[in-house]
Amino acid sequence: MNTRRNQFLRGVRAELPVLMGAIPFGMVYGAAATSAGIPVSITQAMSSIVFAGSAQVVTAQLVQAATPGIVVVLTACLLNLRHILYSASIAPYLHHLPAVWRYGLPYLLTDEAYVVAMSHYTNERVDLQYKHWYVLGAGLILWLVWNLSTAAGLLIGAAIPPAWSLDFAIPLTFIALLLPALRDRASLSAALAAGILALVLATMPLKLGILSATLAGMVVGLLVEPRPTTPLAPIQPQPQERP
């Protein structure tokens, strides 16, 4: 069907701008893992298997610091806990699909693919029927480029001068993804609260600060939402704000 191919290719195209951040990100990871003493094959395998940039970079840092293995695993898992939240928010759009899609697509849903997928699913002008092909296109091209840039980082990473600060491409990618997600006052408040808390909690062990800050940001978003949170809330006469 032409529509499937169309959606797949549109997903690939939607992911292309994000790749500009993923390429230096992958190279930074490849270089970091090499200097941590992780063998080439394992560094590359981690990009294929784990497919989560920030957790991979942190794993390399912890291995370099000779952290006990169990702590490395726990920290990376805690850092990836936000994927449970991603899973919960995208699940309603995927549950009608056959098992092969339901088990396959989530594997590709790392930050950069999830954000692109969610903005496509929340775009009501497009019919739901073939949207999963769009997500597949976005996820696969990201996976492919992520693995290729890891390989590039392994090959030439050591030759890149630290003064280039290539690692700064990591927060920059997240900034480029964040700003379009700030659609209203509530999401802006959620981001501000989470950002400030993540900073305050940065010294928490095992990177728990990022998870706690995300949860707190979600609560702040709910509180700032214009609608009352329960239908049973008492109705108070108050001046209506009109934009």
């Binding site: 969610m118 964040l178 997600a181 999401s187 959620a190 981001a191 989470a194 993540a198 995300t214 940001g217």
Partner: peptide
């Protein structure tokens, strides 16, 4: 609010 909060964090 997960994307906004997680990315900011």
């Amino acid at each position: 609010y997960v994307p906004a909060a997680a990315l900011a964090a």
